[in-house]
Design a protein around this nucleic acid. Structure first.
Lengths: 129, 129
DNA sequence: GCTTGACCTTCCTACGATGGGAAGGAGTAT
DNA sequence: ATACTCCTTCCCATCGTAGGAAGGTCAAGC
């Protein structure tokens, strides 16, 4: 059995976030020592690593909640899991497209700006047009 | 002279955000009518459009604050503007790279998942590995 | 046993940008 | 005068994460 700090070190999820995930019901309430310290065992560490990986893939808390439920359900249907994943892929693609449009517009403007110390600046001209 | 709602309609910046920008000092305090309504003229509309365009390019408030200051400064050096823009381009590229990595990993997993209603699911297997 | 220091507890605050809504006043058209 | 739209300020929520304060617990060394 580990303390919250050890579990944090072992999973890469900060102690702060572990308490937060518990507080919003993403994780079941952790066991406690006599002194009131939270305790973490194999199952709990697994959940934490699961959450960590899902966060790394950009899933939001509510999506992770569903994924954890599905993971715990032996009778689950992979159709639902795949749907969640595909929705998230589309979400990522939308965000990538937005950022890419910004980057393209802005790097074009930056390329047009001499950057030679004079006041003339196509970037500001465009913003102030 | 326009009211805040008219200025919002004319610039695409919501009345809420106009008040917010004023409250954080991004915009100077607007003039007021006798009744206490904020008033907006040419200069103010220009600033609002400037902010709107900069937001559309993904600049944060503090960057916009600097850009607005530079815009107002006739003695400005385009070197500084270009540096801000290039830093932001790099920021965008980092975000794009992060999201792209997520999308690649996740769409690979989704492609490996049959989605045929059975419990077997490479996505959950990977998250729970 | 006692002290020290590391770790834990809860609770509050903040971020960045935006939106929602309540309560009440201003302006305008009939 | 009435009714309606718009304005005002103020508070709260989002989402995930981090910082800090005040106080309790635990283990190691003396």
């Amino acid at each position: 059995m580990m303390t919250i700090g050890e579990a944090a070190g072992a999973t890469g999820v900060s102690a702060k976030m572990i308490r937060y995930y518990e507080s919003i019901g993403l994780l079941p309430k952790a066991g406690r020592t006599q002194g009131g310290y939270r305790t973490y065992g194999h199952t709990e560490l697994h959940d934490l690593r699961f959450i960590r990986r899902a966060r790394d893939l950009g899933f939001g808390i509510e999506e992770i909640r569903k994924l954890l439920d599905l993971w715990r359900d032996r009778e689950r249907s992979n159709t639902e899991v795949k749907a969640i994943a595909q929705r998230h892929v589309e979400d990522l693609e939308r965000k990538i497209a937005d950022l890419t449009a910004m980057r393209r517009a802005l790097s074009h403007l930056a390329a047009c700006c001499a950057g030679d110390g004079r006041p003339d600046c196509p970037i500001l001209e465009e913003l102030g047009a």
